[in-house]
Amino acid sequence: MQDFPGPGGGGAEPGGGAQVPVEVVVERAVKQLVLPRPVIRTSPDADFVQVVHVPTWMWVDRSTWDPVTASAEVEGLKVTATARPQKAVWSMGEGGSAVCRGSGTPYSAAYDAKAASPDCGYTYQHASIGMPGRAFTVSVRVTWDVEWHGGGQAGVVPGLVMAASRQLTVDEVQAVITR
């Protein structure tokens, strides 16, 4: 595959008329894409407290990880663009981050309760008590690459990004041993 064709990549129509450059139609097709905003999911659930030194599982809701396709047509030149999510980059609010190559694995009872996520997790080292709102702001940036084809050509438009954030409260739990 190739990136956008260079200047004059549209060529000329048979009969001498100027043809619309394919990059113009590619740009229109890419603008037609409606990429979903990622929906952040965690285990423990984000509505509950995360615990220092206990693995937090993270994933992007699967409904926001499906390919998205759009087409554009100008003067008989049709281009179809398909965007696919490539990775999720998480910023955890305490200075740490995680890069996940997929949407992540939702936690289920099939996993050991103490186990780390097999593909997208983070373990907090500090409580969020000193932060505004007593919570860390967690954000995820999902990067999409767009493959396009039309007019006998194909290419890739890399690096479209959709982002989301939410607050996560992280606390320390201390055990008290009594005899």
Score class of each variant (00 low, 15 high):
residue 148 W to I: 14
residue 44 P to V: 00
residue 36 P to S: 08
residue 99 V to K: 09
residue 63 S to Q: 12
residue 63 S to I: 11
residue 161 V to R: 07
residue 171 D to P: 03
residue 101 R to M: 12
residue 133 G to T: 08
residue 146 V to D: 02
residue 102 G to Q: 11
residue 154 A to G: 14
residue 4 F to I: 12
residue 173 V to G: 01
residue 85 P to W: 04
residue 32 Q to G: 13
residue 143 T to R: 11
residue 17 G to T: 14
residue 25 V to R: 01
residue 53 H to E: 13
residue 141 R to T: 10
residue 58 M to N: 11
residue 20 V to M: 01
residue 104 G to R: 03
residue 101 R to T: 14
residue 121 G to P: 08
residue 109 A to R: 06
residue 27 E to N: 15
residue 45 D to R: 01
residue 9 G to I: 06
residue 156 V to Q: 06
residue 178 T to G: 13
residue 81 A to G: 04
residue 104 G to P: 05
residue 126 H to W: 08
residue 66 D to F: 08
residue 82 T to H: 09
residue 156 V to W: 04
residue 110 A to N: 13
residue 166 R to N: 13
residue 84 R to P: 06
residue 116 A to K: 05
residue 67 P to K: 06
residue 160 L to T: 04
residue 112 D to M: 02
residue 36 P to G: 04
residue 102 G to E: 11
residue 71 S to M: 00
residue 160 L to M: 09
residue 150 G to I: 10
residue 115 A to L: 04
residue 121 G to M: 08
residue 137 T to V: 07
residue 13 E to H: 09
residue 50 Q to T: 10
residue 136 F to L: 06
residue 161 V to L: 07
residue 155 G to H: 11
residue 31 K to E: 15
residue 82 T to P: 07
residue 152 G to H: 09
residue 168 L to N: 08
residue 147 E to P: 07
residue 39 V to T: 14
residue 160 L to R: 09
residue 93 G to E: 04
residue 109 A to K: 06
residue 171 D to S: 15
residue 80 T to A: 08
residue 9 G to Y: 04
residue 74 V to P: 00
residue 104 G to K: 03
residue 8 G to H: 09
residue 47 D to Y: 07
residue 165 S to A: 11
residue 86 Q to Y: 09
residue 41 R to D: 04
residue 66 D to N: 13
residue 64 T to G: 02
residue 43 S to T: 00
residue 139 S to W: 00
residue 144 W to S: 01
residue 130 G to R: 11
residue 71 S to P: 00
residue 132 P to C: 02
residue 134 R to T: 14
residue 145 D to R: 08
residue 21 P to M: 00
residue 153 Q to D: 15
residue 64 T to M: 02
residue 145 D to G: 10
residue 106 P to W: 05
residue 37 R to I: 11
residue 134 R to D: 13
residue 99 V to M: 09
residue 162 M to N: 13
residue 27 E to C: 10
residue 176 V to W: 02
residue 130 G to C: 10
residue 75 E to P: 03
residue 60 V to S: 09
residue 7 P to F: 06
residue 135 A to M: 07
residue 54 V to W: 03
residue 130 G to P: 05
residue 158 P to N: 10
residue 52 V to E: 10
residue 61 D to I: 06
residue 174 Q to T: 15
residue 72 A to P: 00
residue 10 G to K: 01
residue 46 A to G: 04
residue 84 R to T: 15
residue 165 S to G: 08
residue 66 D to G: 12
residue 91 S to M: 07
residue 83 A to N: 01
residue 105 T to Y: 05
residue 165 S to I: 00
residue 157 V to C: 06
residue 69 T to M: 02
residue 148 W to N: 14
